[in-house]
């Protein structure tokens, strides 16, 4: 054992001495290094839980490395994402943030100091299908009821400009739904509002309302993306004429969730090491068992595949971008 570790040390020393060019094995690079894993939200939520899980197992598959998870919340994930983007391209800073930033980049919102196309993508851990959910006591039982409602229905969203707001606007306008949006419902405010009855429904990621539905307080009437069979897919319920691109955009968004990315320009050996470690983590039986216990679905994809998905999502025609920009601004009354 002693001899082994000595020779391993010797190898590292040799590799370092002969220069980075010959250090083909990126995994060895991480021996003895500290890696910062930035979570762009406060401790406790889904991003944090996934982030901590990923960091723990990547550390396991990058021997000798130490992963430090840092929460950098603020400005709807922008602060943390900007920080990951601006970090040195040495492969020692990675992190996770909301995929909804794709919308912000297409529109060119203020506060963005990154280009999603340039991140060194490591992988994604899950898909996060969106659902239309209505309160259990509401008379709306199905998609047909919703579409046929004479009265406008109150649907809650988070603040104007948030991903939940943008998606609700897109769906309401494109499908001409009788929905009146009530903004400013953050966290689980909307669930209580549905219990009180002031809000009829919401368009949310399935994982965030799962428990609410299980408790019998709400029902899901349509779903976008995902593989679950218990709720009809929106595609089978409607035919969107114009604006189909926007619906596709939401669907593609739902496929990539719980991302892990490193700063742009990470050297190829290190990036390969990160991607391999990520893949091994996702395939680890322990991780899968723990994620299962936490109620966190694991549907991974890796490296180049993510980069392609992001590039496709970002490549929108000027018309779509204009539509999206319009959607992200508060409608004039």
């Amino acid at each position: 054992m002693n001899l082994l570790s000595k020779s391993a040390l010797g190898f590292v020393a040799l590799a370092a001495a002969t220069g980075a060019a010959q250090a083909q094995d990126g995994t060895a690079f991480y021996n003895g290094k500290t890696v910062n894993y930035i979570v762009a939200t406060a401790p406790g939520g889904g991003y944090d839980t996934y982030g901590r899980l990923v960091a723990e197992y990547m550390q396991k598959y990058l021997p000798g490395s130490t992963f430090v998870v840092r929460n950098m919340p603020g400005a709807g994930h922008l602060i943390g994402t900007n920080a990951i983007y601006a970090a040195k391209p040495d492969g020692l800073t990675l992190g996770t943030f909301n995929t909804g930033l794709v919308y912000n980049q297409i529109v060119g919102n203020e506060g963005i100091k990154f280009d999603l196309n340039k991140f060194s993508w490591v992988g994604k851990a899950a898909a996060d299908p969106r659902v239309f959910m209505v309160a259990a006591q509401s008379p709306i039982k199905s998609w047909a009821d919703l579409a046929a409602s004479k009265e406008p229905l109150n649907f809650s969203t988070a603040g104007v400009g948030s991903a939940s707001y943008v998606e609700t606007v897109i769906l309401t306008r494109t499908l001409k739904l009788p929905i009146r949006m009530q903004t400013g419902y953050n966290g689980s405010d909307d669930q209580l509002a549905m219990r009180r009855g002031e809000i009829t429904g919401t368009i949310a990621s399935r994982s965030s309302i799962d428990q609410f539905v299980k408790n019998g307080y709400g029902r899901m009437i349509a779903q976008i993306g995902g593989t679950e069979k218990d709720v009809p897919q929106l595609k089978t319920l409607v035919k969107a004429g114009s604006g189909q691109e926007l619906l596709d955009l939401i669907e593609s968004q739902s496929e990539i969730a719980r991302l892990t990315a490193a700063s742009p320009g990470v050297p190829a050996p290190q990036l390969k090491a990160l991607r391999d470690a990520y893949r091994k983590s996702m395939e680890d039986k322990d991780l899968q068992a723990r994620a299962e216990k936490l109620g966190l679905p694991v549907e991974p994809a890796y490296g180049e595949e993510i980069a392609k998905m992001i590039a496709t999502a970002l490549k929108q025609t000027p018309e779509t971008a204009a539509l999206l920009k319009e959607a992200m601004e508060k409608p004039k009354k």
Binding site: A75, V160, Y165
Partner: peptide, 9 residues
């Protein structure tokens, strides 16, 4: 801060 009604900082 961010105005939740207008999305303006």
């Amino acid at each position: 801060g961010m105005d939740p009604q207008t999305g303006t900082a």
